[in-house]
Design a protein around this nucleic acid. Structure first.
Length: 216
DNA sequence: ACCCAGGGTCATA
DNA sequence: TATGACCATGGG
């Protein structure tokens, strides 16, 4: 009940978020790679560069040189690494027949394949599964860990898969899992941006009246 | 001048 | 298995 209660509390406070910000599945995939350890505003600039260059497609990205791609990605940081990662992803994506083919794969098969791409880790893979392929996958990020360890619903030491399975199990009885997981992850991120803005080092608040993180 | 962001890989022990 | 270095920009 606790996991659903946190969701209801966040939803009541912030309302529906309608994630992921992005107009197409491919844009969502690009954003998922570029937002690794990076603020979304910087990612938007990089994506805007791709749009301006008419390069927001796997073919265009694969055609560009490394230097050209890195230049487009520059505002999102880690641009050399991300240029390579995005290229790796596009190579895989095109080889597998792109969206129409991948759309028919089972979720487990798709996750294993995504994780085989160098530069796609568990969170990026799950972002893509949930937001680009509409699969019932709960995305675990640093905020989720922090929030739920503050609430003492997890220790925070769990491995990624362990946490993902816990969340999915706890919410398994709910209806419409895809919309639920979609909103839940989005709400956690929005909450992180909203709380404790005034304190430089304040970590995300828990949903209790007294936030332990607000002290010290 | 710090701190940190919607992580992931690689080398090392 | 698990820790640490590394990647790099822009906002608070």
């Amino acid at each position: 009940m606790a996991f659903k209660h946190v969701y209801r509390t966040l939803f009541k406070k912030y309302g529906p978020q309608h994630w992921w910000p992005g107009d197409s599945p491919f844009e969502i995939m690009v954003g998922a790679v570029l937002t690794q350890n990076t603020s979304w505003t910087n990612v938007e600039r990089a994506i805007a560069n791709l749009v301006t260059a008419d390069a927001l497609s796997a073919d265009a990205i694969l055609t560009a040189t490394h230097e050209q791609l890195a230049e487009w990605l520059q505002p999102s940081g880690y641009f050399n690494i991300k240029a390579r990662r995005l290229r790796n992803y596009c190579e895989w994506y095109v080889q597998q027949g792109a969206y129409e083919k991948l759309r028919r794969w089972t979720t487990d098969r798709l996750r294993v394949a995504l994780l085989s791409v160098n530069g796609v880790g568990p969170e990026t893979a799950d972002d893509i599964l949930l937001y680009a392929f509409d699969r019932p996958v709960f995305v675990i990020d640093a905020y989720t860990r922090r929030l739920f360890s503050r609430l003492q619903l997890v220790t925070g030491e769990e491995h990624y898969e362990e946490l993902r399975e816990l969340f999915e199990k706890r919410l398994a009885r709910e209806k419409s899992l895809v919309p639920l997981f979609n909103e839940y992850h989005a709400l956690i991120v929005i909450h992180a941006k909203d709380v404790c803005k005034t304190k430089p080092r304040c970590e995300i608040c828990c949903l209790r009246r007294r936030c332990p993180g607000a002290m010290a």
